[in-house]
Design a protein around this nucleic acid. Structure first.
Length: 301
DNA sequence: TTTGCCGGGTT
DNA sequence: AACCCGGCAAA
């Protein structure tokens, strides 16, 4: 483990400029667990030098990357409060390869993108655990983290000075009103691997709702997979709770039983299902229903 | 064409 | 039960 850290530390800082490096914590080690296909995901240790030259290498053997064994730190602290562990002692892989080069008022945080959940943790493993236990309904003991949790959170970067409510200003709708959730990551982030839109208030006056009341919060939204933009916001309800979706033997959409008869058509739900999200490869991380070609039960409509 | 999944199979 | 797949309809 430590060896990987050292290698990543030693190799990285020479490529990018030391002064104006956009240094974003690169999810290099999160290159899933399988190296099969995923032609572009040759993002290995350090930074990936902006896809200039690693196309020549057919497929980098991709370092050991045992995905997360850092659970034993987090088992005891049950509450997932905001300040879980700010120190970087816990993880080695998800953090920035360049140690502490940040502008000393910037901080990366991880924001849960679930429907009404606005939890913001400071570590990726923390938010993965939050998503896994709270939303995905996984048991907290069996960690078994596929990449699935990555779809439900995004990495933001905020100024610490305006952290008073700077984070909550990122959520345009107040948590009380049940307004439709905004399209959180703007849709022009469809580039395959991580891009960073820098909506500072300077030149590109992004009319987006975020960064509205806090003009000094330049926020980066990392899009790890291409589908992260739409997947979390279009999930109406957690997979476990979705049992009440139309939980009746009635045909496609005639809710009977009482006076109200809501006949919602089944207009081919819009939420991307496991097949589309994960792709035909990586089929083994679909939900079981999708694998059996049944109605998806992870991304319900 | 692809994608979601019902109905109906087999293990 | 769990596990598949033909085939259909919607996009």
């Amino acid at each position: 483990m430590a060896a990987t850290v050292l290698t990543s530390l030693s190799t990285s800082p020479m490529v990018l400029h030391p002064s104006s490096a956009p240094t974003v914590p690169e999810p290099a080690a999160r290159a899933w667990k399988e190296v099969l296909s995923a032609s572009y995901s040759s993002s290995t240790s350090g930074n990936w030098s902006w896809d200039a030259s690693d196309q020549s290498v057919p497929s980098t053997p991709s370092p050991p990357l045992s995905n997360d064994n850092n659970k034993n730190f987090l088992l005891s602290s049950q509450g997932d409060d905001v300040s879980e562990d700010v120190t970087e002692s816990t993880h080695f892989m998800f953090e920035d390869p360049i140690p502490r080069k940040r502008k000393n008022s910037m901080k990366v945080m991880f924001k849960c993108l679930w429907k009404n959940c606005e939890k913001v943790l400071s570590t990726s493993s923390g938010i993965q655990r939050h998503v896994r236990t709270v939303h995905l309904g996984r048991n907290s003991d069996s960690d078994y983290s596929d990449g699935e949790e990555d779809f439900y959170y995004s990495e933001i970067e905020v100024n610490m000075d305006s952290l008073t409510e700077g984070l909550s200003s990122l959520t345009p709708t107040s948590p009380t009103t049940a307004g439709p959730p905004p399209v959180f990551p703007p849709p022009f982030t469809d580039v395959p691997h991580s891009e960073h839109i820098n909506m500072n208030g300077s030149q590109s006056h992004a009319p987006t709702l975020l960064s509205q009341s806090a003009p000094s919060t330049l926020c980066h939204i990392r899009t790890d997979h291409a589908y992260q933009a739409t997947a979390p916001v279009s999930i109406p309800v957690g997979p476990e709770l979705a049992g009440l979706g139309s939980g009746n033997g009635t045909g496609p959409g005639i809710g009977t039983g009482n006076g109200i008869s809501v006949s919602w058509q089944k207009p081919r739900g819009e939420a991307k299902k496991c097949r589309k999200v994960y792709g035909m490869e990586k089929r083994d991380m679909w939900c079981t229903a999708c694998r059996w070609k049944k109605a998806c039960q992870r991304f319900t409509d």
